[in-house]
């Protein structure tokens, strides 16, 4: 499915934090939102999964306004992995993943065989199939993140919306998760702090600053030395990755961008 964010404006108590953002993800495309803290990435995602109501603009799912769909119906098409972790609740891993079936179920109905298969498949995809009976609260941060992703996969969505899914994951699990997303070939909108991960995963990037998209396009086109200095305030070189050929950003960890340009 195609998802299109059109001229989106979101404001909190009168102050616009996102002002006129357009984002398009074609079917099967992985689109990344990158930008410094507070640039409005998460806010854009939150309107896509209907946690926030836009002040103006629309989110279109195959041309239909997502606000006009009934919430359960929308949740069958769009699954989200927000950053929240919840408090310690006594649910098993399998029960957490079973939540993904919520939009498909009527009141009082239990999980049937096909639900259980979907749940098991989702657990298998994130490598947690042997942990279904464990309490969620006993998992490590990385394991929790993978279980929550399995919950989103169990929603069988056409569009995945992921807010910093690699947070708290060690290097190996980060890479496994990115490989999993690539293999899914599902329409995906994702925020990532790790620009190298974004450059390798995403078909297209939108760079946000202060609630506005300042650059869009293929990672190779967007991630330039000038943009990194101006938007992210970092001094870096962009080279070709020796193994993959993706753009590789080599950060200068000694000098911030301003002092580098002054000198």
């Amino acid at each position: 499915m195609r998802i299109a964010v059109e001229d989106l404006v979101v404001s909190f108590s009168g102050r616009a934090v996102v002002c006129g953002v357009d984002v398009v993800a074609e079917p099967g495309e992985i689109v990344g939102l990158v930008g410094p803290n507070g640039s409005g990435k998460t806010t854009v995602l939150r309107t896509i999964y209907r946690h926030l109501r836009p002040a103006a603009g629309r989110v279109l799912l195959d041309g239909r306004d997502i606000r006009k769909l009934n919430p359960s119906r929308a949740a069958r098409h769009v699954a989200a992995l927000p950053q929240e972790r919840g408090t310690d609740f006594e649910l098993s891993v399998r029960e957490v993943v079973a939540m993904g079936r919520t939009p498909y179920k009527r009141a009082f109905s239990g999980d049937d065989t096909s639900d259980r298969d979907i749940i098991a498949t989702a657990l298998e995809q994130v490598g947690m199939v042997d942990h279904g009976g464990r309490p969620f609260s006993a998992l490590s941060g990385g394991e929790r993140q993978r279980v929550l992703l399995a919950r989103a996969l169990a929603q069988q969505p056409d569009v995945l919306v992921l807010d910093e899914p690699t947070n708290h994951l060690d290097m190996r699990h980060q890479i496994e998760l990115l490989a999993l997303l690539r293999a899914q070939r599902r329409t995906t909108v994702i925020t990532l702090h790790d620009l190298n991960a974004a450059a390798s995963l995403c078909d297209r990037l939108h760079v946000l600053r202060d609630g506005v998209v300042v650059a869009s396009g293929a990672p190779r086109v967007v991630l330039t030395v000038d943009l990194l200095a101006e938007v992210f305030g970092v001094h870096a070189a962009v080279v070709e990755h020796p193994l993959t050929g993706d753009p590789l950003i080599a950060f200068d960890h000694n000098t911030p961008a301003e002092s580098a340009t002054i000198s």
């Binding site: 209907r50 946690h51 009934n70 359960s72 949740a75 769009v78 989200a80 927000p82 929240e84 929603q155």
Partner: peptide, 8 residues
């Protein structure tokens, strides 16, 4: 709340 919203 965000997870719940995402689940419809």
């Amino acid at each position: 709340d965000e997870t719940a919203a995402g689940l419809g």
